[in-house]
Nucleic acid binder design. Sequence first.
DNA 1: CACCTGAATTAGTTTGACCTAAATAATTTA
DNA 2: TAAATTATTTAGGTCAAACTAATTCAGGTG
Lengths: 151, 151
Amino acid sequence: MEITKREEEYLETMYMLQKNKGVIRVKDISKKLGVRPPSVVDALKKLSEKGLINYEKYDRILLTEKGLEIAKETYQKHVLLMKFFTEILGIPPEIAEEDACQFEHYVHEITAERMKEFAHYIQEHCPYVLKQFLKEHVEKEGAKAQKTPPK
Amino acid sequence: MEITKREEEYLETMYMLQKNKGVIRVKDISKKLGVRPPSVVDALKKLSEKGLINYEKYDRILLTEKGLEIAKETYQKHVLLMKFFTEILGIPPEIAEEDACQFEHYVHEITAERMKEFAHYIQEHCPYVLKQFLKEHVEKEGAKAQKTPPK
DNA sequence: CACCTGAATTAGTTTGACCTAAATAATTTA
DNA sequence: TAAATTATTTAGGTCAAACTAATTCAGGTG
């Protein structure tokens, strides 16, 4: 049984809900993924058939061992990509979030790993150059974040 | 009318065929995208309805102004991502190719642009650190490429 | 010029992922 | 606890993107 990118997304979302709210509800998945509740139920049934979650209707939803594993892997890639986009490239969080949310499902293991290594390497070996790059390219967001306007 | 990621992919492929072979054939699109010819024909009809290509059955296929524009944009992102993955991260071309092929359809303009700027910045401001990073992380491919084994 | 082959197309299905509207279950509250 | 509200589920679509099998067309060759 193949697992689709979208199913990965569902698993990751459920994992995060579990972590943050302690419980996984259809409504919350629906909200997070921007789809209607019936679509979530469809997905839950398929994930259940594939043995990635335990799901009985009107009952609580739980990730299985296998589902959890996939969710965690995906989530880790997400975090790693977010760090790269925000800390190295200086992309605003909302945009980085969207980019990461897509790329996490496609990026090869080696590429993800290399991005992490690169980030560390640069942060260690030329932090000043990185700082300078960010300063030169992140004026707008810096300005927006400014709570007290210069008088 | 919305344009899908997959349609973008078709346009990009046709653009490349046009550039390389001078003519766009169903069979070649089929081969490049790894789908059967009828699927290509389906796609061509839709793209034609959306005004992105000129297509009459059994006739030659041409990108319209609008189709060409989208194809070029996508292609440019592809090239840029390839450069980043191979020249900055040292990812092997075949893998970089696959990553780029997906990400090019999702990445935000700002992120793509920033990657380009970052690449230039690093190459200019700390080329030695970059060289060192690549040397330390690209041993395997280097070894594989070695035609004459050290005796 | 008729035939053959390979390319392109049509017809008819399938699958994933979504939707709306309507029904049912669970939970809250008066 | 009965009624009202909210959450979840079912039923019945739609749409994009693919597929196979069968058909039609175009170009080259005997």
